[in-house]
């Protein structure tokens, strides 16, 4: 019994501190209800008002997983290690990426079905989720490159500093589309 009481303290450190190599891409939309409160403080400085519809993007299935992670804190098992990694990832990246999905999955599904030529074509749920990730990366990349263009333009003495312009998008679009 006594070692059990001592364990959690020891294990708590590694669970949050170390800057381990993050081995997965930003998973902002995966934020669970359990971690929402934690990430709230980090995202608060960035975005004071979170849009209401964002809550619909929360994947509830991971909710109980996170609960597991906490209840497993003092119990050794295989899942535990995985979950530690997961919470690490969320901690370290909430400030980098917004919690929002640029293209919500329902909307993406509608758009994809609209694009299918054969009306019999369907898309699996996992495939849809992966496509959402793809579009998420696409949009994020577009904005990042536009911000980069803006930085260059500012050096050249452009007008309307700090505002992303259509011209920025025009410059980056060809390469972006080639890359995706």
């Amino acid at each position: 019994m006594p070692p059990k009481a001592a364990n959690p303290q020891k294990r708590k450190g590694p669970a949050f501190k170390p800057p381990r190599p993050v081995n997965a891409p930003p998973e902002a939309k995966k934020t669970t209800a359990a971690t929402a409160s934690r990430s709230a403080q980090s995202s608060k400085q960035a975005a004071p008002s979170r849009p209401a519809f964002e809550t619909t993007m929360i994947i509830s299935s991971s909710d109980d997983e996170n609960g597991d992670a906490f209840s497993n804190d003092d119990v050794e098992n295989g899942v535990d290690e995985l979950m530690e990694d997961a919470s690490d990832r969320e901690e370290s990246e909430t400030f980098l990426t917004s919690q929002l999905n640029p293209v919500p999955e329902n909307l993406l599904a509608r758009l994809l079905y609209h694009g299918f030529e054969d009306k019999d074509t369907v898309i699996q749920k996992g495939a849809l989720e992966l496509t959402a990730k793809y579009m998420d990366t696409f949009v994020r990349e577009a904005i990042a490159r536009a911000a980069d263009e803006r930085k260059d333009a500012r050096k050249g003495g452009g007008h309307m500093d700090g505002y992303l312009q259509v011209e920025d998008l025009e410059k980056l679009a060809p390469q972006l589309v080639l890359d995706f």
């Binding site: 993406l108 994809l112 609209h114 030529e117 496509t131 793809y134 696409f138 998008l169 589309v177």
Partner: peptide, 15 residues
Amino acid sequence: ELVYTQIANTSRDLE
């Protein structure tokens, strides 16, 4: 507009 076009292309590709 860009994203819309990209999604349209993507859906055709996937199909």
